[in-house]
């Protein structure tokens, strides 16, 4: 299984599901990371973490630990 945290810069993927529970999961869902959403990994911060992704026409940053909850398929 592949997770969003494993994606490299410039790669695209589609969300399969968001794991876990509670506030963090809900926030990920609310921000539009739902199954079938296309995500593009734009960049990583100077220290390698957090990452910046583009989805639904806007940019979002999240930590690798949070991205590790998002199961994806590479495009």
């Amino acid at each position: 299984m592949l997770y969003l945290s494993q994606l490299s810069i410039g790669e695209r993927c589609v969300v399969v599901s968001v794991k876990g529970e509670g506030a963090i999961r809900r926030r990920l869902l609310d921000m539009g990371i739902t199954s079938g959403t296309e995500i593009y990994l734009r960049k990583k911060a100077p220290f390698g973490d957090p990452i910046e992704i583009a989805l639904r026409g806007y940019e979002l940053t999240l930590r690798k630990a949070e991205a590790a909850r998002v199961e994806i398929e590479r495009l």
Binding site: M31, E59, T61, L62, E66
Partner: peptide, 9 residues
């Protein structure tokens, strides 16, 4: 705290 933040244009 969790860091899931919009980067506004």
């Amino acid at each position: 705290s969790p860091f899931i933040m919009e980067l506004p244009a």
